[in-house]
Structure formats: C-alpha cells, structure tokens
C-alpha cells in the first residue's frame, strides 16, 4: 500500500541517509530533475550504494530515471537495476512503446545480472498531454507496471495552462489517469502539492485526490508526509462503517438472508467491496491494533 511517495535527491547524502526516517510508504531516489547534469554520475553511485545498504528497507524503494530522450536513462538503469529496487519510475512516458522500450532494456540487464526477469516493477510518470491520452495503453503495456503516477507541473506546461492550487486545469488528467489505472488494475498516484508551507492546502488537495480515487500522492517535502499518510488512511469513521458492513454481511449469510440493509440503506456488492478495501487498508496500516 502506497499512500505517500517522497522524492529524495539522489545527490544529497544527508537526505538519503535520513530518508527512511520520515515515514513515507515509498521513497523515490531521484536521478532526474533534482540532479544537475554535472552530478548525474555521482548521484548514480550514491543511489546504487544506498540500495545496496538498504536491502532490509521495509517500504517501497523506487528510482526515478532520466527520460528516454536523454543520454542518461540507460546508464541509470545499468547502475541501479542490479541492486533490485522495487520499481523504476520513468519520466515523460507518453505511450506503450516507451514502456516496452524501457522494459526491453530492463530485461537485458536483469538477464546479464542473473536476476529473475520482470522482478523490478515500473511506475510510469505521466506528465504530458499525450501521456494522459495514452494512460490505459501505458498501464496495460507490461505486467511490470504497478502504478500510474501523475506529474502535474510538466503537464500544465504541455497543456499551455497555468498550474493553480485549486487544480481545475488538471482535473481531466486526474480523472482520466485514475480511470485508466483502475481499469488496468494498477495503482494511481497523484501529483505532488508544491507549496511546502501550506499544510491546509496540502490536506485539501490530498483529500480531493483521494475522493477521485487516487491511492496515494507524490511528496516533495518530508514535512508533507504525515499529512498525506493521514489523508490516504481510512478514517476511524470509515473503519467503523466497514466493520459494520462486513459484520452485517457475515450475519446475513449465517441466517441465509439474501438482502440486508444497514442504517436504512441496502448493502449491495459495491458497498461490500468498498468495505473490504477499507478493512484491508486499515489492517495494513494499523496491524494488530486494528
């Protein structure tokens, strides 16, 4: 379960060393935007060593590689893939062909290293208009794809629109991406909230994304992690309701009843499915206290 995915610049040892203390469900070791061209080499080495010394990391480790229109992405993969990160996050993915290109490169490296092919997943970052329009094709292009991730900043530039806190300009992209991801049975991760100091704005933005169906959100500041985790966790009210629904259904089954109602409302299959999702998520997050 990934509620928060936090970026850590691949060229800053202090952030890398402390990265897993911030409570993010997934860490993105960044070789792309956060790293200047002159530091790409050293960042690769640092990230490779980080992966090597964090084999027992309890969360998900993801590496953001440079886009396929640069000279860096193959070297990025060659440096980090042998250290078995959980996923690669390729950028500016705009179609299934790009996914397949990256997958071929990954497979070649996996074979060369004696790794099981397909063992490292993909979380394509969709941050172009074409990428959004191709979302389902991208999500379905390979079984490696575990999630679609929205990059709202680059997308708005491509849309010729202005990025706002309200986010109406990316509403279509958000809903399109969620729908494509869910149709392909992969996770949907929302774009980051970029005002580091606006905690109320962050909470509202994350809650809106959760309402649209996103399972989690990118995070650019460690200070945002707690809030994002909180928003994307089931609330006590949701957990209580899910418990009631599941209890009601179990009781109905025991008594041989086909149709049941709770709080005056029919409990049908979608409600049960949603209750089970909430129940499973709560169990994952809260463990035995739940």
């Amino acid at each position: 379960m990934i509620r928060s995915m936090a970026f850590l610049p691949g060229n800053t040892p202090n952030m890398l060393i402390n990265g897993d203390s911030f409570g993010a469900d997934a860490l993105i070791l960044d070789l792309e935007d956060a790293v200047a061209p002159s530091q790409k080499d050293s960042a690769r080495i640092l990230v490779r060593n980080y992966l090597r010394t964090h084999k027992d990391h309890s969360g998900t480790l993801v590496v953001r590689i440079n886009s396929t229109d640069t000279d860096y992405w193959r070297e990025d993969l060659q440096a980090v893939l042998p250290e078995r990160p959980d996923c690669i996050l390729p950028t500016k993915v705009d179609g299934a062909d790009m996914v397949r290109l990256i997958c071929r490169e990954m497979e070649a490296i996996e074979r060369a290293c004696g790794m099981e092919t397909g063992s490292v997943g993909l979380m394509p970052l969709l941050e172009t208009a074409m990428g959004i329009e191709q979302a389902f094709a991208i999500a379905s292009a390979s079984p490696r794809v575990k999630a679609l991730v929205l990059g709202g900043e680059d997308l708005t530039a491509d849309l010729h629109s202005k990025r706002t806190k309200e986010g109406m300009e990316i509403l279509y992209a958000r809903t399109r991406l969620v729908c494509a991801a869910r149709a392909a049975r992969v996770e949907a991760i929302d774009t980051p909230f970029t005002d580091v100091n606006d905690m109320e704005g962050l909470r509202a933005d994350a809650a809106f994304a959760k309402g649209l169906g996103f399972g989690g959100k990118l995070v650019i500041s460690p200070r945002h992690i707690d809030t994002v985790n909180e928003v994307f966790s089931p609330s006590q009210e949701e957990i209580d309701y899910a418990r009631e629904v599941l209890h009601c259904i179990a009781e109905a089954k025991e008594n041989g009843l086909g149709v049941v109602a709770l709080r005056g409302k029919m409990i049908d299959a979608p409600i049960v499915a949603r209750a089970q999702q909430v129940f499973d998520a709560a169990r994952t997050i809260y463990g035995d206290i739940f």
Partner: peptide, 11 residues
Amino acid sequence: TRDPVGLRIAK
C-alpha cells in the same frame, strides 16, 4: 528549524 530531520525528532 525547517530541517525535516529536526522536525521529525521534535514531533
């Protein structure tokens, strides 16, 4: 402090 490590410790 705005240092995320310091803030985590403080919390």
